[in-house]
């Protein structure tokens, strides 16, 4: 076999799909962030960003998510070396760090609700929860994918010749991470 059957310009089929999907996601988060920027000051008498945000806390959880990108890189590395043990370790660490981040977000949300910011308090509240909530949902989907891959690696092993799932999940995970960096900067750091 091995004669090129297609003219692809060297593009990988699944990576092309993932990249075009992520491009679309970029617009999605762009619209969410724009909405937030429009509404950030419209607190309708409810609490505002300055009262609510606990920057040190969110910095730590952001750092956790940032570190998960590092472990993702390590997982990808292990997968390239076909080192199943290391791969598993790093996949699970990435998922674990993602869960820690989600836990932090859950804690943050419940604190905010306690302090009087709900979905229906103000346009600020609505857009804040919508933006960070959709991001959290993306992290959750990523954790699910990472867990599924870890289980697979126990059962059958994820060799390099058997596809590019690790690479795809890594792309997705890094994307979600980068989006968080933007959210953290725009939503948290620039507001206080």
């Amino acid at each position: 076999m091995a004669v090129a059957h297609t003219t692809s310009g060297g593009l990988d089929i699944r990576k092309t799909a993932m990249w075009s999907f992520l491009a679309s996601e970029l617009m999605f988060f762009g619209a969410l962030i724009s909405t937030f920027l429009l509404y950030r000051g419209r607190t309708n008498g409810g609490p505002d960003a300055e009262e609510l945000f606990d920057i040190p806390f969110t910095s730590v959880s952001s750092f956790v998510l940032l570190m998960s990108s590092l472990t993702m890189v390590l997982a990808h590395n292990a997968w390239e070396r076909n080192d199943q043990r290391q791969l598993r370790l790093w996949l699970l660490s990435t998922a674990g760090l993602g869960l820690v981040f989600l836990g932090g977000q859950f804690y943050e949300f419940s604190t905010f609700v306690h302090e009087g910011l709900k979905l229906d308090t103000s346009p600020f509240g609505s857009s804040f929860y919508m933006l960070t909530g959709f991001h959290g949902a993306h992290v959750a989907v990523g954790v699910l994918m990472l867990s599924a891959m870890s289980i697979l690696s126990f059962r059958v092993g994820l060799t390099k010749s058997r596809g590019m799932n690790v690479e795809l999940v890594a792309l997705y995970w890094h994307f979600v991470d980068i989006v968080w960096i933007v959210i953290f900067t725009v939503v948290y750091l620039l507001q206080v």
């Binding site: 059957h5 297609t6 003219t7 990988d12 089929i13 799909a17 075009s20």
Partner: peptide, 15 residues
């Protein structure tokens, strides 16, 4: 859309 983009970028016949 994702499907079409991928198809057109990667599945064209030789030449």
């Amino acid at each position: 859309a994702v499907n079409f983009i991928t198809t057109i970028f990667t599945m064209r016949a030789p030449g």
